[in-house]
Amino acid sequence: MSVLVVFDIDGTLTDTVSLHRKAFHEVLISFGLPGLGSEIKEYKHHTDSNIFKEIYTSFKSDWDEKVSKKFEEELAQNIKEKFQKGISEISGAKIFLEKLRSAMIPFAYATGSFYEPAFLKLKDCGLPLDVPLATASSFYERESIVQSAVEESSKKYSKSFSKTICFGDGIWDSKTARNLGLEFIGITEDPKLHSEWKDQNIHHVFRDYSDDLSVLSAVLSFRTGKRI
């Protein structure tokens, strides 16, 4: 059975959720817009491109893709400046990706972030940059982002995949996997979310990748069809 692993980035591989949210809020303000709402769920799609468009078009009438590109560039610059204080990977992420490669299990990235900020985070944390990276720069919906990552992976690895496993840290990640009929492994320190996922029969949830062998076993269980 040929398996592909698709990773979200913020909160799943890089410890950058708060940093990204703060930068996004600040750049919205610099565009003369209200900042982010207190609840991300109030937006139709949990992606940078959609959230920015929703907010922008609610207050201004001159929307076009050039505006979105300018916002992405300023967001990337704001985030890069925040890197001066240092950012971290989710514990064990780099080693875990190396273990996937050693096991010859292909992987890709699919993120609700714009491309440039996502690339900067991966690079700063020393994570592999030579794998497919699908982002909100090309799509508004998370489902389309994940589908793009799978399609680009088929081209890169010259194979089709009988099973795709998504890693994510948010409820939107598990919903996306469910909507696409894909498998899911959760990465979270939030006990409430951990419990919610368990109630949804998501059997593999980890705080991080510190116990890399257990996380790898979870991936392999999907390949063999044996639940652990």
Rank of each mutant, 00 (worst) to 15 (best):
E65F: 14
T176A: 05
L33Y: 07
H194N: 14
I90S: 15
A149C: 07
V215D: 13
E72I: 11
I51G: 02
D8S: 05
S68P: 03
M104L: 12
R142V: 03
I87Q: 06
K163D: 11
S217R: 11
F7K: 04
P117L: 11
G225I: 14
K123H: 14
H46E: 00
D130E: 12
K155E: 12
S195P: 01
N201W: 01
P117K: 02
Y157D: 01
Y109I: 06
E42D: 05
E143Y: 03
F222W: 06
S158F: 09
G181S: 13
L127R: 06
G37M: 06
D169A: 10
G170F: 02
E81Q: 15
Q84L: 15
H204E: 04
H20L: 08
W172Y: 14
E26R: 10
K226H: 09
P128D: 03
F167C: 06
L120I: 13
Q84E: 15
L133C: 00
V131H: 05
G168Y: 06
L4V: 00
A136R: 01
I95Y: 13
S148M: 06
S160D: 13
L216E: 02
Y140E: 06
S2A: 08
S102P: 00
S154H: 06
S49H: 04
V3F: 05
K80I: 11
V5W: 02
G186P: 08
L122F: 14
C166D: 03
L213V: 11
G170P: 02
I202E: 08
V27I: 15
L127H: 04
S160H: 06
S138D: 12
L180Q: 07
F184Q: 08
K123R: 14
A149Q: 02
K198W: 00
Y43N: 01
E72L: 10
H203M: 03
H20V: 09
D199L: 09
F222R: 01
K80M: 11
F96W: 13
D173G: 03
L120W: 08
E72M: 15
F83M: 14
G86D: 13
N50K: 00
S2C: 02
A118K: 01
L193V: 05
E151H: 03
T176Y: 00
K60P: 06
G32W: 09
S137P: 04
E98V: 00
A118N: 05
P132F: 01
Q200H: 10
L182R: 07
K69I: 15
S68L: 14
G112Q: 01
E89L: 15
I145N: 00
N78Q: 14
N201L: 01
